[in-house]
Design a protein around this nucleic acid. Structure first.
Lengths: 203, 203
DNA sequence: CAGAATACGGAACTAGCGTTCCGTTTGTCA
DNA sequence: TGACAAACGGAACGCTAGTTCCGTATTCTG
């Protein structure tokens, strides 16, 4: 499988990108239900062309999600590098929350449809979790985060705030509550006051 | 519109219940995608019978959701009545979290499909929110809950913990973090220790 | 610039699912 | 118990959306 990818024809490469972009947008806007025809139309190609590039609609989902995850992982790694563990962790989580909120429709739709993106995205997921896990462990060792909280809890809490960030709920305030709750009991917010309205105490 | 419901025939009444029960189970297990045929099969009736009872598949969704919501509202009201506001609020929220976790698939599926259950369920939703709102206001007046938190935040936070209560995340621990975060800064947990019980009771 | 390989477009095919129709069965009431 | 209305079952219909096919257009190579 050394698979020297023989170069695609120029128009083919361009169309592939157009389809991916159109799909990402369409899924985010209208959910997973968008017909293939609609995606093709948005990309300005025919359905035949679509199926030349992706063997199936589900394959397109995968491609879109993988592309997105790889971006997230890269950006997250960049953020995790420099700062002190506690701060870095919250920064990391905040970034994830932003991403989650933005692409919520997409992720929801995929999960809701029971599409097994997990297996293909496992690599990226592992990478993310590894980074988060290290930050969490260090932050806990320093007493900056409750000891009983697990990696899964962390992810669940942050992603949870993405699900309902409308209907009069502010994701900023919800995150602020979560971050307060993550500190060990009796340990006040180390930075500014926590009664912030629309300004999270970190950033 | 005094609508004296002339009594249904015995078999009809029975079948209607069978369909509702089968539907609730089917939606919870397999999502909203289950074909009408499958629901009918589970209920042990034909599709013709199905459509005799519900004019459309969506009407069935509504019926299922409304039934569930009316149960939740009734039980929630019962719990909210007796205790002190702060405690009552958390008890109330915990009950909602339980329900949300149990019926997650159903609610997800409905929301994901963009079905307008809101308009029909508006009455129940209002009732729930009214009760919650009063508890929240009272608890905030007593300084037991952060002042900046809104009703929407509260609901979002609690429902958020329902979304990811697997994959190594414990809903109990997540709720515990949220409840800690809801207290005004520097106010320790008034009740027992806040460390995890390892009895998730659900997963 | 010509020929061949690659890619394109969209009509046509197929499968699944919601809904309707109608001949048959069952419950109810006198 | 007999007759009639109510309810049942499941075959059939039509629509939507995923996929395939093939004649046409475009790009690359010598």
């Amino acid at each position: 499988m050394s698979a020297t990818v023989q170069p695609m024809r120029a128009d083919a490469r361009r169309n592939r990108q157009l389809i991916l972009a159109a799909a990402a947008q369409a899924f985010a806007e209208d959910g997973i239900g968008v017909p293939v025809d609609e995606i093709a139309r948005r990309a300005g190609v025919g359905t035949g062309t679509f199926y030349r590039h992706f063997p199936t609609k589900e394959a397109l989902f995968e491609a879109v999600v993988l592309e997105h995850m790889s971006e997230v992982v890269a950006e997250a790694a960049r953020r995790a590098a420099a700062v002190a563990p506690g701060e870095a962790l919250l920064d990391f989580l905040t970034y994830l929350a932003d991403q989650g909120a933005t692409k919520r429709n997409l992720v929801d739709a995929l999960a809701g449809a029971g599409i097994d993106v997990e297996s293909r995205a496992a690599h990226f997921k592992k990478a993310l979790e590894a980074q988060l896990s290290e930050l969490l462990t260090r932050a806990q060792a320093r007493g900056e985060i409750r000891d009983d909280v697990t990696l899964g809890d962390l992810i669940g809490l942050v992603m949870g705030t993405c699900q309902y960030s409308n209907h009069g709920a502010s994701q900023r305030r919800m995150l602020s509550v979560v971050y307060d709750g993550l500190r060990p009991s009796g340990r006040p917010d180390p930075s500014s006051d926590s009664s912030s309205e629309d300004r999270p105490a970190f950033q």
